[in-house]
Design a protein around this nucleic acid. Structure first.
Lengths: 190, 190
DNA sequence: AGATTAACGCAAGGATTTTGCGTTAAGATT
DNA sequence: AATCTTAACGCAAAATCCTTGCGTTAATCT
């Protein structure tokens, strides 16, 4: 749920949403998100504060809304011709994006202003979508592929756990090692 | 960091912290955490709002402080005599606590009002402490044990990911399956 | 016991949030 | 295309919350 409830999709409402989002991004870049206030965002966006309060409720829900939009993947995962490289490169890109200061900030904002968990669900839906694209492509090639949930549990989840709870233990090699472990697990036992 | 900076540990400061924490828990139980305000908490605790503002900054940091305290394990993991059962039972307890409505609420609060990530770090430190206790006990018995990080990455992280991002996919059997997978991985390959 | 100073209470001033009401314009109907 | 309905907006007043200066209390140190 971007805005508080179903919003008229076009015209003035769309313009307001766009200018408010743009104002948030501008002000975040200028002064960080700690000191953002609704009246300030409203002034920059050219709307009245009450418009923001009625539509988003408070600053956090607005920031959560903006964060989810910025976390949406912009392109399908790159195709390297085989599952292993596809997964490894996607995981490395993912960890680099999510562990960067803005990435971590967006994740925390997305979770913080999300009373019903729908924004968090959208974040995982983005990751699932990307993983499934990689797995489906590999399956079409005839490769043996793990379940989506296996990749989510053992590649995505460990990375996100460290982003949220253990920053400082994150580097591209960690992402590669997690992918390697999934392939190791994929091999048949004696 | 519970309070904003080093706080005098005893006497009046300790009483204020205790009564404020108690007030938060009471009001949370009575009316949920969405409508909590600092003046309301202050009134219930018998202190002035400025005391709370100066010590915790805002409602979120206070809630984060309270949440971390409630997430602290109360006892060391139960001893069933072998690693497998110790881990399985601990993981089941963990998932039940973390996926319950209050558990999820505390985790989200702990993350939300935590500008520098220290409260989040404390949460993972609690889990690490419990896991290490289980592993050390098994090692003393002479059992073959996985690394702490392996358990954190492939048991704790997937559970926490689902708690935060995919509620509805959580049950005790999932916790057991994650532990099973770690043991499967522990077996030597041909 | 006395000195030092962190933490608290009070109260004023400033900023933010809420709310009622009139107006605008998006989407539906004919 | 003109009209109707009502969601969304702007404005402004009122309520609430947050900040801050200053005097007081009491925890800690010597």
């Amino acid at each position: 749920m971007s805005p508080r409830s179903a919003v008229r999709p076009g015209g003035r409402s769309a313009r307001v949403q766009q200018s408010v989002h743009a104002a948030v991004l501008e002000l975040q870049a200028e002064q960080g998100r700690a000191s953002l206030t609704v009246p300030q965002i409203a002034a920059r966006a050219g709307v009245t504060p009450s418009t923001i309060y009625r539509r988003w409720g408070d600053v956090q829900e607005l920031l959560s809304d903006v964060a989810v939009e910025r976390l949406r993947p912009e392109a399908p995962p790159a195709d390297f011709g085989n599952l292993r490289e596809d997964l490894e490169n996607w995981a490395v890109d993912f960890i680099e994006e999510m562990s960067s200061p803005p990435g971590r900030s967006y994740i925390r904002d997305a979770l913080a202003g999300d009373p019903d968990g729908s924004n968090a669900g959208q974040c995982s839906a983005y990751a699932i979508e990307q993983v499934e694209a990689i797995l489906a492509r590999a399956a079409r090639r005839g490769e043996h592929v793990p379940d989506t949930d296996t990749v989510m549990d053992h590649v995505v989840a460990p990375m996100m756990y460290r982003v949220l709870f253990r920053p400082g233990l994150l580097d591209p090699q960690y992402a590669r090692d997690l992918v390697t472990a999934v392939f190791y697990r994929l091999m048949p036992l004696p």
